[in-house]
Amino acid sequence: MDWTGLSPDEARKLLVNKDKSKRDKRMDLARAVATFVRDGDNIGIAGFVNSRQPVAAVHEIIRQAKKDLTLSFHSAGLAVEYLAGAMALEESSCTIKRLEFAYWGIELFGISPMLRYLAENGKVELEDWSNFNMSARFKAAAMGLPFMPCRSPLGSDVMKANRAKLMDCPFTGTPVVLVPACHPNVALIHVQEADMYGNCRIEGPLFTCPEISMAAGYTIVTCERIIDHEEMVRDPNRINIPFFAVDAVVEVPFGAYPGNCHSWYYFDEIHIREFRSAGEAFRKGHKDSLRSYYNRYIWGVRDTDGFIEQIPYRQLKHIQQIELREFQLMRSQN
C-alpha cells in the first residue's frame, strides 16, 4: 500500500512525539503556512463544497508557492479552485500533483472549469472516491485504524481506480469495501470560533472537520474570531475540535469568503460568479481575466485583509444580513 500522506505508523509516531501542552498557538497566517505546509505535502481540505472552505489559508499557500501538493477532500469548491487557478496561470508557482476526492464543483454556480482544465489536459493524478469514502477515510485515521469498512461504492467503477479493497465480511460472508485511512500531512480548517489554545466551536454542519483535525499530522485552524478560553469551556459539549488536535490558531475574519460561513455570512454570489467566469474563460483560452483576478485579489495583496478591503461594503453587508435575519424579513425588504 502506498500511503500518500502519512502512513498510520508515521502518523502515530508524529503525534506521540508532539508537544501536546495547552499553550498559546496564535500566529499570523503567513507564519502558520510557512511552518506547517511543505512542498510535496498531502493537504486535507476541510469544509464542504463552498461552505467553510479554508480560502484564506489557501490564498496564503498560493502566495508562498507551495509545490507538488496532494489534495484530499470529500467535496470542495472554492479552496481547490483557487489552488488550481494559480497552477494553471503559473506552473512555476503553486502546483497540485494529485487529487483524492469525491466531488469538485461550484454547485449551483456550475461545474468546475479548473478541474476540467487539469483533468482533461492530464495535469494531475486522480483518485476518485465517494463522499462517505473520504469522510470514512478521515474517520479511520482519526480512530487510529488503518482502514474502515464501508458499503459504498460497492458495484461502482469508483473502486476500479482507487485503492479500496473488496473483501467478504468475516462475520456475515457478504461483500464490504475497505477504505484506507487518510492521514494528511497538514489539515486546513476554517471555523467560527477558537480559543488561543486551539479549542474550536463550530456552528452549523460539522462536515468532517473534527475527524480531519485528528487525522492530520498538523492542523492549521483559521477562525472568524478568537474567543476567551473561559468562554469556550463554559460549554464543553460545544467544543468540536480539542486543542491538542490543533497546531496553529489564526484569527482571519472572512476567512471562508466568498463562501458560506454559518451564522457569519452567506455565499457572495456576485464574487463567486466573477471568479468562476474568469476560470471558465481561461479554460476556453482567454487567460487575461483570471490573471487579473489573481493579481488583484491574491498575488497583489499581502493577506486576507487586502483581499476583503477590495470587496464593496454593500456586498459584505448583504451576505452578513442573510445570516442574521429570517428569510421572510429579507424578502420583504428586497
Binding site: 464543483g105 465517494s130 458499503r151 461504492p153 460497492l154 461502482s156
Partner: peptide
C-alpha cells in the same frame, strides 16, 4: 464533478 454523495445514496 465526481460522485459526491450520490453513489453512497445509491448504495444505502
Amino acid at each position: 464533478p465526481g460522485s459526491g454523495g450520490a453513489s453512497d445514496m445509491a448504495a444505502s
